[in-house]
Nucleic acid binder design. Structure first.
Lengths: 206, 206
DNA sequence: GTCTATACTTCGATAGAC
DNA sequence: GTCTATCGAAGTATAGAC
């Protein structure tokens, strides 16, 4: 017998407008600035409408994450099928707006269980898509998975790009040029189909 | 002619207690939960004392960052002088509490200029210390800086460890074991004084 | 579906007594 | 250095009219 309150349908255009507004505020001023009043005002609506479409503010955040997740999966399938998928993946995770949003979500997820779980679910799904693509690419080049597990490369690409973008947002620059050049070189080698000639590790761990 | 208001001295024990409380709240519930009332209450003091020691809440955050920065630099100099500095560095940036705090600071810095600048200053200082240590270590092993710039390795170690901890906090696990093993292998090689036998890149870019 | 009206909470910040 | 008292702004959320 939880809640007798009315809730608006998902297909509503107003609901979409509220989500858009929330996303913008989150990007520009952080998750803490996403309040019913600010969201509504940015969308040119009354604050009470936020509560009509979302039972509580956390539901708004969840809806935002789900919408973003759907879009990411669409983009990821385009990336996986593209001509230079590694480069495309690198650029995809290097988009500054996405990285900004990601930081806010992670911070939010840090102390709201439900949001963290939703985020993790989504991120794992993306990583799985990336890993499958990379595994295909590496095996076509005869690079043993024992040396460079595809899932690690996926983690490395999305993680490192995110770190760089994050630091850039703070105004940090040291090491960026060098690291971008390094990444560029390795992506080139991997994508050109040339096989790395490092010798495999001689120890037997894992 | 700015502010006639009284401000407590830095050496005050009460001030320290307030900073401690703020740090705890930030870690447990995020920066948005760090309010004068909550901080004071956690420290067993009156909210007005927060305003006595910190003109505005942003000053409290800045003080928190500076205090953390001093501590980090102390720890970093111990790391740089330790027997296995790369491993020590990896473990240093893998501390979950530190990573949680870092996320909050970055999110905060994302939309508060002064805080972002302070963060960047501090992070650049740490990176410089790391880079100097790594440069010495690599050159003692005859690894050309052209192949793996020390600053990139510094970025890679601190960045990757942070990403892993961040994901762990969300409950993500995929790729972690593989990547930790990979890191373990490379740190071992680098620190054992063995020279990597990858051939240098044949192209001339950067 | 959107509005007015409203209840209640928490926030930052200051003035001034002790 | 710490207290009482107090301001005005902003927050979440609900009830009920239109």
């Amino acid at each position: 017998m939880a809640s007798p309150r009315r809730i608006g349908v998902e297909s509503s255009a107003t609901r979409s407008a509220l989500l858009d507004a929330a996303e913008q505020i989150m990007m520009e001023e952080g998750y803490a600035a996403v309040s019913s009043r600010r969201v509504a005002s940015r969308a040119g609506l009354k604050p009470q409408l936020v509560h009509y479409y979302f039972r509580a503010m956390d539901d708004l955040f969840l809806a935002l994450i789900r919408r973003g997740a759907e879009r990411s999966v669409e983009q990821m399938s385009r990336i996986v099928g593209s001509k230079q998928p590694l480069r495309a993946l690198w650029e995809f995770s290097s988009r500054p707006e996405a990285a900004r949003l990601a930081i806010e979500y992670v911070a939010l997820a840090n102390h709201r269980k439900a949001i963290g779980a939703e985020m993790a679910r989504h991120a794992e799904q993306l990583r799985q898509l990336e890993t499958a693509m990379i595994a295909g690419l590496l095996s076509r080049q005869g690079l043993a998975a024992g040396e460079l597990p595809p899932v690690s490369l996926a983690l490395l690409i999305s993680g490192l790009s995110r770190v760089l973008v994050m630091e850039s947002a703070l105004g940090m620059r040291s090491g960026h040029a060098e690291t971008l050049a390094l990444v560029e070189r390795h992506l080139g080698q991997l994508e050109a189909g040339r096989v790395s000639d490092r010798k495999p590790p001689e120890s037997r761990q894992n």
